[in-house]
Design a binder for these strands. Structure first.
Length: 487
RNA sequence: GUCCUCGUCGUCUAGCCCGGCCUAGGACACCGCCCUUUCACGGCGGUAACACGGGUUCAAAUCCCGUCGAGGACGCCA
């Protein structure tokens, strides 16, 4: 790492969401990268809530964001700090700028500004604040003040020259001062605006690295100008490429689900989701895809972040999720499966007590073919309740042979007749019956699976039988006589 | 309209900075085959990309210029 980290010895990064919505995928990715960076260098990860826009911010959204971060395991070392509680700091800073001649009062009304902007837009002209109030004489100012006109505070952007951003991801970016308008620092209600509060906070919180989305690149020159005006040290910047929807536009609500907690509710594992996010815009440089948290922290580096935007590919997320589910222990999965069952009213407390072993064994049996945690409650429902549905297509396919109406109960009685009930004994019983009745074993196997689980697909039949136990297996096989749709 | 950025398989990417090892590697998805009582898992194989045009060079995905395409930002929002 260059200058800052080396100099101060401590990396300090912040994630600064605005609580005008839930934690979305893009924000989560930013938070993850900030967090990984801080952890990699043993630095501090600071959480700051940018709620200066009181009208659009809400405490519920703050809680939502925190919940999303907790779910992803992104723990913060300091904060959350709320900008709404720091207004005085910003006002004081604005006063300083006014006194040092880096800012001025502006009496233009928002309405007249909007008019001018709209007109420019209509004429397809570029609009930039023309600096009317920047050139006010002291006499004119006195008049305005005397009339008690509402005033905003604007930053005085230098007339000529350029600002250079040195970005860890994009390299050098140069912007001419004349491209930057005199932006508002304090609005006419004396409330700080984004640029002011960010810079003041980043200075006061001694942020060494600003790691944020690339949608902030164009804000950076203004902020650098502010640091300079304050005579402060400028942090290092790393702008992250954007996450796009399938149509290649910045990912947003209209692309479907973007809330992080919604992914939790859809049955994704936080570690899978985190791994997936890490791979969006970053790669370790070799072909490694599945990485533990420690590995991610260990291998993460700013210069491996790439510059082009990335499309959110849910299929890859699904794949990762399946990988993680398959590799997880039943113990890890159990609490999540419980939640999924609860929401489908399939949960019974016995699963954590007398039937705990059964519950865990079922998870182990099913996990290799589950794409999400919610699948346990859907394709796996027959293992948790006796009132499972029987898939019609499956029944049509595997129960249509009329002979089955006799064979299945027969199989049930054979199973009951054996003194042992095991993988071997049940298979033996079924195959013996098939041979005796001159039918293919597959006919009985596939029919039995549908009867036992309601599905044509699932674990190997004899595993299902042993898992369900002799009694339930027999009962379910006999149920064929009560079914009507197979004729 | 102005400014900024990006451009390798459908998607995520490695390679690019420091030209030759690239007849461009991996992964997801897709398609075959194997395994198999189904579906998964797993294994093997396949289709598929350097946006385009110039230049520099013995040699360019890699360096330079241009074109085109895409995205982002242009608020008294953040």
């Amino acid at each position: 790492m260059s200058s800052h980290a080396a100099k101060s010895g401590e990396v300090r990064v912040r994630f600064a969401p605005s609580p005008t919505g839930y934690l979305h995928v893009g924000g989560a990715r930013t938070a993850l990268f900030d967090w990984l960076f801080a952890r990699h260098y043993g630095g501090k990860f600071i959480l700051r809530i940018e709620d200066t826009d009181v009208e659009r911010s809400s405490p519920e959204m703050v809680e939502e964001i925190l919940e999303g971060m907790r779910w992803l395991g992104l723990d913060w070392d300091e904060g959350p700090f709320f900008q709404s509680e720091r207004t005085e700091h910003y006002r004081k800073a604005a006063r300083e700028l006014l006194e040092s001649g880096h800012a001025y009062y502006c009496y233009c009304t928002p309405e007249s500004l909007k008019e001018r902007r709209d007109l420019a837009m209509k004429e397809k002209r570029n609009y930039k604040y023309e600096g009317t109030c920047r050139r006010l004489t002291s006499a004119q100012i006195e008049v305005n003040e005397g009339r008690g006109l509402p005033r905003a505070v604007r930053f005085k952007v230098p007339e000529s020259g350029t600002v250079e951003i040195s970005d860890h991801v994009f390299g050098k970016i140069e912007v001419a001062h004349e491209q930057i308008e005199d932006f508002v620092l304090l609005n006419s209600k004396n409330h700080p605006t984004y640029h002011l509060s960010v810079v003041v906070d980043d200075m006061e919180m001694r942020i060494t690295h600003v790691v944020r989305g690339a949608d902030h690149v164009s804000n950076t020159p203004k902020q650098i100008l502010l640091y300079r005006a304050f005579g402060a040290e400028i942090p290092e910047f790393a702008h992250l490429p954007l996450i796009l929807g399938p149509d290649k536009a910045k990912l947003s609500k209209r692309h479907g689900t973007t809330s992080v907690t919604a992914y939790r509710d859809m049955g994704y594992l936080p570690e899978a989701f985190r791994n997936f996010l890490a791979l969006l815009g970053w790669s370790p440089g070799d072909n490694t895809e599945i990485m533990s948290t420690d590995e991610l922290i260990e291998r993460f580096s700013l210069d491996k972040i790439n510059q082009s935007n990335a499309v959110f590919d849910i299929q890859k997320l699904d794949w990762l999720n399946r990988q993680y589910i398959g590799a997880s222990t039943a113990e890890r999965l159990a609490p999540m499966v419980q939640k999924a069952l609860e929401s489908k009213h399939l949960w019974r407390d016995e699963f954590n007590e007398a039937e705990r072993e059964y519950f865990f064994a079922t998870i182990d049996m099913l996990k290799s073919r589950m794409h999400s945690i919610n699948d346990f409650a859907e394709s796996g429902q027959a293992f948790f309740t006796d009132v499972y549905e029987i898939d019609e297509a499956a029944a049509k396919k595997n129960l249509k042979d009329p002979a089955l109406k006799e064979l299945m109960p027969l199989l049930a009685s054979r199973l009951k007749a054996h003194d042992v009930f095991s993988l071997e004994s049940s298979e033996q019983a079924l195959r013996a019956l098939a041979e005796e009745k001159q039918v293919k074993a597959g006919l009985l196997i596939n029919a039995a699976r549908v009867l036992l689980t309601g599905r044509a697909v699932g674990p190997p039949l004899f595993h299902i039988m042993v898992q369900l136990g002799r009694e339930r297996t027999a009962t379910r096989l006999e149920r064929i006589s009560t079914l009507t749709f197979h004729q």
